[in-house]
């Protein structure tokens, strides 16, 4: 009597294995990834805020140079990019959201992060520059062409022209704040 219930329990346990595996890949793994993704995002934002503060004296503007009064010592192009992907939990949430419509908040913060990081990388490439003008941004999707298969990633590219003012050679001048 006891033995039969034990073997029945074992069989039930064996029958549960596919279900448990499914639960792991469908629920547990995405949740873990979601937690990791949240932590990474928080840390990334902290680093972005700190670096933005540190490089705030270099203006980055999307307009071409219009001020004729400053003499330019050098001008050259700089570009930087970042490829990002959402974690699987956020992707799942976005898919759900996609069905009902509305804001995909997880993608908004992902793209915001990527863009700001790319701008910071561009600024950090030219530590001696006084300004970066004519900023252009471009976003493109790479990979993920087949349905469900493949990698879905987004590339954010920023580029502009880094200017060094001629007067800056004599010594550090206060940044032009307009």
């Amino acid at each position: 009597m006891i033995a039969s219930t034990e073997s029945g329990g074992l069989e039930a346990l064996l029958a549960l294995i596919p279900f448990l595996l499914f639960a792991f890949f469908a629920v547990v793994l995405p949740v873990i990834c979601g937690i990791i993704g949240t932590i990474t995002e928080k840390r990334h934002y902290e680093s972005i805020h700190a670096r933005e503060k540190a490089t705030a004296h270099v203006p980055v503007v999307p307009t071409p140079l219009s001020d004729d009064s400053v003499r330019i010592a050098s001008a050259h192009m700089v570009s930087a990019s970042m490829v990002v992907a959402p974690d699987s939990f956020r992707r799942f949430l976005a898919n759900v959201r996609n069905f009902f419509g509305g804001r995909l908040r997880s993608y908004e913060s992902l793209l915001d992060r990527a863009r700001r990081e790319a701008i910071l990388r561009m600024k950090e490439q030219v530590p001696g520059a006084n300004a970066i003008v004519n900023l252009r941004m471009e976003t493109s999707r790479i990979g993920g062409m087949q349905k469900k298969k493949g990698i879905i990633a987004i590339e954010v590219l920023v580029y502009g022209t880094a200017l060094t003012y001629a007067s800056a050679e004599a010594g550090p001048t206060p940044p032009p704040v307009s």
Binding site: L29, V84, P86
Partner: peptide, 13 residues
């Protein structure tokens, strides 16, 4: 692999 966890795909960058 990185795509599951999310974040930057440095290899692609």
């Amino acid at each position: 692999l990185k795509n599951i966890v999310g974040g930057e795909l440095k290899g692609y960058t």
